[in-house]
């Protein structure tokens, strides 16, 4: 089975937040919430600064605590690509998943259910990239099957230095950052 993931080139990302707006428009995200966001991390003393700009979202973990802790089964692995989704009608809004997520990727939608990034599965299943990937003016984001060694994402991980976020949480995240 495919394992969908993203590879994001931090060398190219300028942190413009186009991905955030594209997601909001595409998925009708309610005002004041977001499913993806930008983190700028810098260290050092002026003028010797190291800086990494990242676009972040749900990591669609392979061992997702939000799925294992969900009392109703609303949080689940989708049968395509292992994408982590929430069935709105089954969600009781208990927020256990929000507490369990190391990435703070989930929020309670004003309509009462928990919401987050879906990897734009509605687009992916129609052969398109997620909205954030397809809009990016720097072409810094790549989406694909991490289990397919010939995919662009796998190739990039093989050829470039990379890291994932909070790997020590042990959730097996599926988003990688090229450095």
């Amino acid at each position: 089975m495919a394992r969908y993931g993203m590879v994001i080139d931090t060398k190219k990302c300028v942190g413009c937040q186009d991905c955030v707006i594209a997601c909001e428009a595409e998925n009708n995200v309610p005002e004041g919430f977001c499913r993806d966001w930008i983190t700028t991390e810098s260290s050092g003393k002026f003028p010797t600064i190291e800086m990494e700009i990242r676009t972040e979202r749900c990591n669609h973990c392979t061992d997702a605590p939000c799925v294992s802790c969900c009392p109703t089964g609303a949080s689940h692995y989708h049968d395509v690509g292992g994408v982590v989704l929430v069935t709105h009608g089954e969600c009781i809004g208990c927020k256990a998943c929000i507490a369990s997520c190391p990435y703070d990727a989930r929020y309670v939608h004003p309509e009462g259910y928990v919401d987050k990034c879906t990897f734009c599965i509605h687009r992916v299943e129609n052969g398109k990239d997620p909205a954030c990937v397809s809009v990016c003016p720097t072409h810094c984001m790549y989406f694909g099957d991490l289990d397919d060694p010939s995919s662009k994402v796998s190739q990039l991980l093989k050829s470039r230095k990379n890291h994932s976020l909070i790997p020590e949480a042990g959730t097996k995240p599926n988003i990688y950052y090229l450095t």
């Binding site: 300028v14 003016p137 810094c140």
Partner: peptide, 19 residues
Amino acid sequence: HLGENMHNTQVQEFSEAIE
């Protein structure tokens, strides 16, 4: 300050050059 100054073509090409 390309990247903060977001003239689309300029930023796209800047990123391409970085790549």
